[in-house]
Design a protein around this nucleic acid. Structure first.
Length: 420
RNA sequence: UCACUACUACUCUA
């Protein structure tokens, strides 16, 4: 059983949960009853691939077989649920756990607090912090950092700062992640001087910046179109012995594109290899999008060919970028051709693809085709979203088709979609 | 003993 468990765990860690599940069934049939370790591995695997439904189901069968789940198993599912935005389910499981007399740990609370933050319920998150302290569960740096990050992501720097004051009162010092959250909070608001101040403060407190620290700052400077400053930081991090990662390079590539220098971006796309970093799908999407947005269509098309020859399996995002770029540079027919090639590449269009095509068709005056596509979205498994309707509506308005505009405005209202 | 929790980059409308 121990051997089999090890295999199950291995499969789960690799993300091969389906195989792990079949193996467990075979084990079970052969008389090797799965134990808490087996279930633990499966539940972890399921949560990691985002299949919380099956994880909950697994938990139930665990209980039915009288294998008692422990806190860690509960925590894993609570976290999985929270990460998918299903916080109320997470809270339910949390109370179910309490009812069974299983003591919640700091992790349990941390997962829930983060879940609440991610759905914008900062107040509830803060209340949960109080609740855990009342119950004698001591919050750790991570707890506070989650809250700091939550406030920062909402642009509420003052709230974040007060969390930091509070944590210091509680005897916890902010660590590098706490500072990183605060820095990206300032970057979000384009307050780069303040972000740099935090950077100085953390260093003066002997808290050493990480690659993430630099990446956040580099992104911030790129956003305010100061790529020079971003490049200085790149130099600084290398001098300081930190190794720029694929995020660093991707951010800089995007930064150069954003200021209208996509060829400089393309250069970085290649030089990153010399620094031991291989572009990933995101890097590819960024440079292709940048080239198109700066009207370097032929550069984009030829670079995409190079990418197709590489080891990367290009995904739908890449082709969305290409199709959008072609549409917007007046190559609707090429865009259509590329769209038709998707199945041969083993790819399926998504809602982005449809919205891009609707926009492209409208721009060239093919309102009827655009409308057909919009209607077809319902059937094809990617139902139109607010963006789909807005794109089409703008097409109608551009052609002064008031009558149909009215109709779609009503339709959108009915679906609760916001009109731009 | 081990296993669960925090920070950074990408595509469509405004």
């Amino acid at each position: 059983l121990v051997t089999l468990n090890t295999i199950v765990n291995g499969l789960c860690v690799e993300g091969n949960v389906a195989q792990a599940l079949t193996l467990t069934r075979h084990m079970d049939n052969a008389g090797y009853q799965p134990n808490s370790y087996t279930f633990g591995a499966l539940i972890n695997g399921l949560c990691k691939i985002g299949d919380t439904k099956s994880a909950v189901f697994c938990l139930k069968s665990m209980v039915e077989r009288n294998v008692e789940p422990n806190v860690v198993v509960y925590n894993a599912i609570i976290d999985g649920l929270c990460k998918r935005g299903l916080v109320s389910e997470g809270l339910n499981l949390f109370s179910e756990m309490n009812d069974k007399g299983i003591q919640a740990t700091v992790s349990s609370y941390n997962c829930l607090i983060q879940g609440l933050c991610n759905v914008g319920k900062l107040k509830c998150a803060a209340n949960l912090l109080n609740e855990m302290m009342e119950k004698g569960v001591i919050p750790d740096v991570q707890t506070f950092t989650i809250l700091v990050d939550g406030f920062c992501k909402e642009g509420l720097i003052l709230g974040a700062r007060s969390v930091i004051c509070f944590m210091v009162q509680m005897g916890e010092e902010p660590n590098v992640v706490t500072y990183n959250s605060l820095i990206s909070g300032y970057c979000l608001l384009n307050q780069m001087e303040d972000a740099m101040k935090v950077f100085d403060v953390m260093r003066s407190r002997k808290c050493y910046p990480s690659v993430v620290t630099y990446n956040s700052l580099i992104h911030g400077w790129c956003k305010v179109r100061e790529v020079d400053k971003a490049m200085c930081l790149l130099g600084e991090m290398v001098d300081g012995g930190l190794c720029p990662d694929v995020v660093t390079w991707t951010t800089l590539v995007g930064g150069f594109c954003e200021v209208g220098k996509p060829l400089a971006g393309k250069k970085l796309f290649f030089t990153m290899n010399e620094y031991g970093q291989v572009p990933n799908l995101l890097t590819c999407a960024v440079i292709l999008d940048g080239l198109f947005k700066c009207h370097f269509r032929s550069e984009a098309v030829s670079l995409c060919r190079v990418m197709e020859e590489s080891d990367l399996d290009l995904d739908i995002v890449i082709y969305n970028v290409m199709i959008d770029g072609l549409c917007k540079t007046g190559k609707l027919n090429d865009a259509r051709k590329l769209l038709d090639c998707l199945p041969a590449k083993g790819l399926r269009f998504d809602s982005y693809t449809c919205n891009i095509m609707i926009g492209g068709l409208c721009r060239e005056g093919f309102l009827g085709d655009a409308e057909d596509l919009l209607m077809k979205m319902e059937e094809t498994g990617c139902p139109p979203n607010a963006c789909s309707y807005n794109v089409f509506l703008q097409g109608l308005l551009r052609k002064k088709d008031v009558l149909r505009s009215r109709k779609y405005l009503q339709l959108m209202k009915g679906k609760g979609f916001a009109v731009d």
